[in-house]
């Protein structure tokens, strides 16, 4: 296991040649969590996309598990899991089948049992045979999160995972991420939830177009509290 899962040095990200935030430098070790915080449009999700290999950085050096991120490599896809705000579903596949496809597709043994456990954990056992179109937006979010835990990973990347979740599920998500760290996994999340940052993150990075600062979780939560509502 590498001592550093994620290393960013003056990484510049953007679209069409224009950066969306200041150069960012941060690192993430196994068993740790790093939170990206900042206003809407500050570049948090763009940084996550670069870490997931979905966007070429415009500058700087980015290493994920010791390599430049390349989602075209099967080994990268096995070790790095991204849960973005994707709202795309196979219209004829049930909730259970989506999770089974993810688990089985990654070669998980006993995929059916794993899926049954996740359905229960994320409160989807009643909807396991429903098509995603019949779910509420919060239930669809839970399905996406469950899919993230149905597969192997060394780095878990989450984009605003608290969105559309009720309080109880947010708390459950926090404890799940704490377990993830305890098991040696690394977590990188972009969030607007100060409580989640304080519960889960070991460090935080405040992202803006002027400067990218590394903060303590408490300081990051205080910044979030000052964000315009």
């Amino acid at each position: 296991m590498a001592s550093v899962v994620l290393q960013a040095s003056d990484v510049l990200v953007g679209y069409g040649g224009a950066p969306v935030c200041a150069p960012a430098s941060f690192r993430l070790a196994p068993g740790k969590a790093l939170a990206l915080v900042g206003a809407n449009g500050s570049g948090k999700s763009t940084l996550l996309r670069a870490v997931l290999g979905l966007l070429e950085p415009m500058g700087g050096t980015l290493r994920v598990l010791g390599e430049a991120p390349d989602e075209r490599a099967a080994a990268f896809r096995t070790r790095v899991c991204g849960v973005l705000d994707d709202d795309a579903w196979f219209p004829a596949l049930t909730v259970r089948e989506h999770l089974y496809l993810t688990a089985r597709g990654h070669g998980v043994l006993g995929a059916n049992d794993v899926v049954t456990g996740l359905l229960e954990e994320f409160g989807l056992e009643q909807e396991q045979h429903a098509l995603p179109v019949a779910l509420s937006s919060g239930q669809r979010r839970r399905l996406l999160l469950a899919a993230g835990f149905a597969r192997p990973r060394d780095l878990l990347v989450l984009d605003e995972p608290e969105q559309r979740l009720d309080r109880a599920m947010r708390d459950h998500l926090a404890s799940r991420l704490i377990d993830e760290k305890a098991a040696g996994g690394a977590v990188l999340l972009a969030t607007h939830d100060g409580d989640l940052v304080q519960q889960v993150a070991d460090r935080a990075v405040f992202v803006s177009d002027e400067a990218v600062e590394v903060l303590t979780p408490a300081a990051a939560a205080a910044r979030i509290a000052r964000e315009p509502r």
Binding site: F90, L93, A103, G107, V108, V114, R151, A183, G185
Partner: peptide
């Protein structure tokens, strides 16, 4: 980090077949 036991990854044909059949 997950504690999932891993076996052989299915082929692309199996993935496509599972999706279509389901």
């Amino acid at each position: 980090m997950s504690h999932l036991e891993l076996g052989e990854v299915p082929t692309a044909r199996e993935i496509r077949r599972f999706t279509v059949l389901a």
